[in-house]
Design a protein around this nucleic acid. Structure first.
Length: 185
DNA sequence: GCCAACGTTGGC
DNA sequence: GCCAACGTTGGC
């Protein structure tokens, strides 16, 4: 929140949709799991390879440092929310779009106008009890979550604070004990 | 701009 | 492995 010369707070671009400070990110554990994130240097990884415009727009327009992330394992047995992470770097050009070897290169993109973006996320804590999708679907309070919608494939999804808090409680984690900005050691 | 074909996602 | 749902592609 920037200050005007008079010291009054300016809304900036946060005015629109700025209560969406919680997210769900999907990852196939066979490709990159929450344990992989915990084992990564500084428990941090580049969230790259996103090749969907709606997901890209969320990364670019709405994700901010300090936003909280539910880490979801898709194509897993069972599919489940398994951990909590934090956004630690805002959108920047996804390097894999220029790397043929990445398998995610995007010929239509050039480095003067990158089409695809990445953010960095850091692990905060694993859920003591992973919350499987069947448990999410069983809670009426979570019926609006994108992840429980039939046919929803978006890999970057906004989540409300209430949904986020409930999923954490279901996973046995007290949201108040998350030390945001101070990665657990 | 329409829309059929195709590829991918992802739960089951 | 099945298949529904969705996004993208490309002919016209």
């Amino acid at each position: 929140m920037a200050k005007s010369p008079g010291g009054k707070a300016c809304p900036e671009k946060r005015a629109a949709g700025r209560d969406a400070r919680h997210w769900l990110l999907k990852s196939e554990p066979a490709v990159f799991s929450f344990d992989d994130l915990l084992a990564a240097p500084a428990r941090t990884t580049a969230w790259e390879g996103v090749r969907n415009y709606q997901a890209r727009n969320f990364l670019r327009d709405d994700m901010r440092v300090g936003d909280l992330v539910l880490f979801y394992h898709s194509s897993a047995a069972p599919p489940a929310v398994v951990g909590v992470a934090e956004v630690v770097r805002e959108a920047y050009p996804d390097p894999t779009q220029f790397e043929a070897a990445s398998g995610r290169d995007a010929p239509g993109s050039d480095c003067t106008a990158p089409r695809w973006l990445a953010v960095d996320v850091a692990a905060l804590a694993a859920l003591p009890e992973p919350v499987p999708i069947v448990a999410l679907k069983a809670r009426p309070e979570l019926a609006a979550m994108a992840v429980v919608q039939r046919g929803q494939r978006l890999s970057v999804q906004p989540v409300t604070a209430a949904e986020f808090g409930l999923v954490l409680r279901m996973g046995g984690l007290d949201a108040r004990k998350l030390r945001i900005g101070h990665k657990l050691t």
